[in-house]
Simulated scan of single mutants.
Amino acid sequence: MAKALNRNLWVDYLRSALTVLVVAHHASLAYTTFARFDKVAYIRSTHAVVDKKRWIGLDIFENFNDVFFMSLMFLIGGLFLIKSIDKKGIAVFIKDRFFRLFLPFISLGTLLMLIAYFPSYYLAKENTHLIAYVKDFFVVEQWPVGPPWFIWVLFVFNILLALLHSTIRKNSRNIAHFITLLQNKPVLFFIFWWVITWLLYVPIAYNIGAGTWTGFGPFDFQLSRVLLYFGYFMLGVSIGTTNFNQQLFALTSPIIRQWWLWLLLALSAYTLLTIVEQKEILANMVKTNQLGSLSGWMIYFSIYTASCTLSSIAFLTTFRKFVQTSFSWWNSLTENAYLIYLTHYIFITSIQFLLLTYDMPAFVKFLITFIISLTLSWGLSILLRKIKVINQYL
């Protein structure tokens, strides 16, 4: 254990912790009560492998992650980019992003997904013909993107930021002034963030459906959340124009000092969301004409966006408050987080497939899948980063 020297250590640790949540999220998907497998086209399944063992507790865990964690990942992804462009220049920045994001996505991502989805093909077709599998992968399933979808979308956001860089820099003083105004007003800070989340998500989700995806080939993305993700990315960029460790997220800031309250509110908001969903309270009120359909949806989406906002703030403030010291094992996790994200899915699907015939509780299967997948992807990353070109960019 050593004293932290990196003043952004808490951001690094938060990013790696979210990566671990991603692994756990995918480990749970085979065992949720809503899981289903489509043998005609496995890409339409809720997950690559679906087990008969289910547990509603994993529904609650999976949905908690789904409400906020990718939005927060995009916010963190934008935090340091303005300073990176200032330092490197636009041309070098784009080149760097191409080698760090797009190239690994299209090459390594495709290879890894070819491996990861083979258990799905076997479960659907009950054969192991490799040529038939590859043809099915690209033609019938239309090049499944899997978890690496985040990487290509982040790349596009990076390019858009490069194009907007001069405009942002011209307005950076106004942006910094506005953010500074929020740092001593936690209630206003929350309301602003919640309203932004609501406006970016609710109109599009209500009109096209909350789970709508679209895309071409591997360039798949969640259409219902694209504005939300870009908004959180730009929020991260905006915060990154300031000295946020000494201002908005200073340890003496009211926002950080009240980390416990954000945590309590986040748990309360998600608990309310879960009760509303599980008990179908709003749906039943609509059915009995106690509430209009539009009103029911707006109430639900308002709770949902509040949960997203509060969970994001709770994670940010809690990590800022408590991450003051570095740990060698967590440093290793941080250094390998990107490759863990890229590689973990091959272990997830393989282990879930191997566990199908074993009679054990869903939670036990989830734990086995999560622990082994995280360990193996972490170890694989350490090995891969011994290759000079991989270590340089990933």
Rank of each mutant, 00 (worst) to 15 (best):
G77M: 00
N331T: 11
K83D: 14
F301T: 06
Y31F: 09
L294R: 13
I115P: 13
I85S: 14
L108Y: 02
K365N: 08
I281C: 05
V23K: 07
I168Y: 10
N284T: 06
Y338S: 06
Q392N: 13
F105W: 11
S224T: 03
R7C: 08
Y300W: 12
I85R: 13
P104H: 01
D359R: 01
R257H: 07
L114C: 06
Q290V: 06
R100T: 10
T325G: 09
E62P: 02
S377R: 04
I131W: 11
N331H: 04
L374S: 00
A266W: 03
I85M: 14
S45N: 09
T241I: 09
L356S: 01
N284K: 14
H47L: 04
V40L: 15
T46S: 10
T288C: 07
V22G: 00
A41H: 06
L200F: 07
S326M: 01
S312V: 06
V50Y: 00
N245C: 04
I56Y: 11
L112W: 04
L263F: 15
Y13P: 14
A132L: 11
V286S: 10
A269P: 13
V140D: 13
I60E: 03
S166M: 06
I82W: 00
I82G: 14
A250F: 00
V364C: 05
I131Q: 12
I159M: 06
S311I: 02
I159E: 02
S71E: 09
A362D: 04
R320T: 14
F353L: 07
V145S: 15
L339S: 09
W152A: 10
F219S: 01
F219C: 04
R257C: 07
G296C: 10
K287D: 13
W378Q: 12
G296D: 04
N8C: 01
T305H: 08
G240P: 15
L394A: 05
F315P: 10
L367C: 13
A48R: 00
S45C: 08
G109Q: 01
F98K: 04
Y117P: 04
K365Q: 04
D86R: 14
Y31H: 06
T375N: 05
V49W: 05
F69S: 10
Y300Q: 04
R54D: 01
I371N: 00
L342G: 00
T46G: 02
S71N: 13
S120Y: 00
N184W: 00
H344Y: 06
L123W: 04
Q352C: 03
Y229L: 15
F216M: 11
H165C: 09
G89E: 05
L235K: 03
I76K: 09
R169M: 15
F244C: 14
W198H: 12
R15N: 07
K87R: 08
L9H: 01
W330P: 01
I382Q: 03
S71R: 05
